[in-house]
């Protein structure tokens, strides 16, 4: 449905905005390398079922997400490594990995590798933006491109919420995917303060600065 398609394209847009920023400005300043590595982990653990993905739409997006994320990490770790400031990227990701790992082991739909890894990936994605938001907090401001990147990334999962509501009412056989929905709502809540600042500042053409 339209919400989901918009969400997936918003996700794709966020990746291209980020790629554009890094290549245009030849710098990855203001971007959290830790968050990018977490996203890589999210894609790998979520798309283990890539080889037998039924719909071409999903297959193409999965390949796009994995390959573009690999490229972003290459750019940040190799090509533009000097512009990477690890002193600003100090969020303790082990807490996020522990959070996702614990929930994946406690409440998977089924104790199979695929399901446990999938649950891990869903929970990890819900908190993977924290190092990036934390870094934003530290620097107090961000380039417009970085703000657009985070906004598009936040919109992707936010749009999945109406998608789930739509599916609930339109597909009689559809059962609510409680893990994805709970994590999706948590994820969107984590972006809420950013969205507010983004909306009030960037929409008025101002530079993105935290109050």
């Amino acid at each position: 449905n339209i919400f989901r398609v918009l969400g997936d394209f918003s996700h794709l847009a966020s990746i291209f905005i980020l790629l554009h920023k890094i290549q245009q400005l030849k710098s990855c300043s203001g971007i959290s390398f830790k968050s990018q590595v977490l996203y890589m982990l999210v894609y790998i653990t979520r798309y283990l079922d890539l080889p037998w993905t039924s719909s071409p739409y999903n297959f193409i997006f999965k390949v796009l997400f994995i390959s573009s994320e690999l490229y972003i990490i290459y750019l940040m770790a190799r090509a533009y490594k000097p512009t990477n400031d690890p002193n600003l990227d100090t969020f303790h990701v082990e807490f996020l990995l522990g959070f996702a790992g614990l929930l994946a082991l406690l409440f998977p739909y089924k104790y199979t590798i695929l399901e446990v890894f999938w649950a891990f990936s869903i929970w990890l994605e819900s908190v993977a933006i924290l190092p990036q938001l934390f870094m934003l907090q530290r620097t107090g401001e961000a380039e417009a491109m970085t703000a657009h990147y985070i906004a598009a990334l936040g919109m992707y999962r936010a749009l999945y919420i109406p998608n789930w509501i739509y599916r609930y009412f339109s597909e009689p056989t559809h059962k609510v995917d409680t893990i994805a929905v709970t994590a999706g709502i948590l994820q969107t809540i984590l972006y809420s303060d950013f969205f507010w600042i983004y909306y009030t500042k960037v929409m008025r053409g101002e530079k993105f600065k935290l109050p």
């Binding site: 997936d8 999903n58 997006f61 998608n163 995917d177």
Partner: peptide, 10 residues
Amino acid sequence: KGRYFVKDEL
């Protein structure tokens, strides 16, 4: 197989 083992969303 149940619904959950067919992941139809990204």
